[in-house]
Simulated scan of single mutants.
Amino acid sequence: MEESAAPILKVRNLNKQFGGGCAKCDNPADRKLEKNYCPDCGTVYSCRNISFDLFAGEVLGIVGESGSGKSTLMRCMYFDQEATGGEAYLQPYKNGESNLFAESSQQKRYIRNHMMGKVYQNPVLGLRMGFTSIGNIAEKMIAAGNRNVGAMEARGSELLEKVHIPVHRMKEAPKNFSGGMQQRVQIAKALSNNPPILLLDEVTTGLDLSVQANVLDLIKHLQRELNISILLVSHDLGVIRMLADRTLVMLDGSIVEQGLTDQILEDPQHAYTQQLVHSLL
Rank of each mutant, 00 (worst) to 15 (best):
A6F: 08
K10L: 09
N13P: 01
L14V: 14
N15E: 01
K16G: 01
Q17Y: 10
G19I: 04
G21Y: 07
C22R: 15
D26K: 12
A29I: 14
R31E: 01
N36S: 14
Y37M: 11
Y37F: 15
Y37S: 11
G42A: 13
V44A: 12
Y45P: 03
S51F: 09
F52W: 07
F52M: 03
D53T: 10
E58A: 05
V59Q: 04
L60T: 02
G61H: 02
S66Q: 15
G69K: 05
S71D: 09
M74G: 11
C76M: 06
Y78G: 07
D80T: 13
E82M: 07
T84P: 03
T84W: 10
G85F: 09
L90W: 01
Q91I: 06
P92M: 11
Y93M: 00
E97C: 01
E97N: 09
L100M: 14
L100A: 05
F101Q: 06
K108F: 06
I111T: 08
M116T: 02
Y120A: 09
Q121P: 03
L125C: 07
G126C: 04
L127S: 12
M129D: 09
F131W: 08
M141D: 00
N146L: 08
R147Y: 08
A151M: 03
M152V: 04
A154C: 00
G156E: 11
L159T: 01
K162C: 07
V163E: 03
P166G: 11
R169C: 12
R169S: 06
R169Q: 08
K171M: 01
G179A: 09
M181A: 05
V185E: 03
Q186K: 05
I187S: 00
I187A: 07
A188Q: 06
A188N: 09
A190D: 04
L191P: 02
L191M: 14
N193Y: 00
L199P: 04
L200C: 15
T204P: 10
A213W: 08
V215I: 05
K220C: 01
H221Q: 15
Q223C: 14
E225M: 11
L226A: 01
S229A: 11
V239Q: 01
D245R: 10
D245K: 10
D245E: 04
D252R: 10
G253T: 06
G253N: 12
S254Q: 15
I255W: 03
G259H: 02
A271S: 14
Y272Q: 04
Q275H: 14
L276I: 15
H278V: 06
L281H: 13
L281D: 02
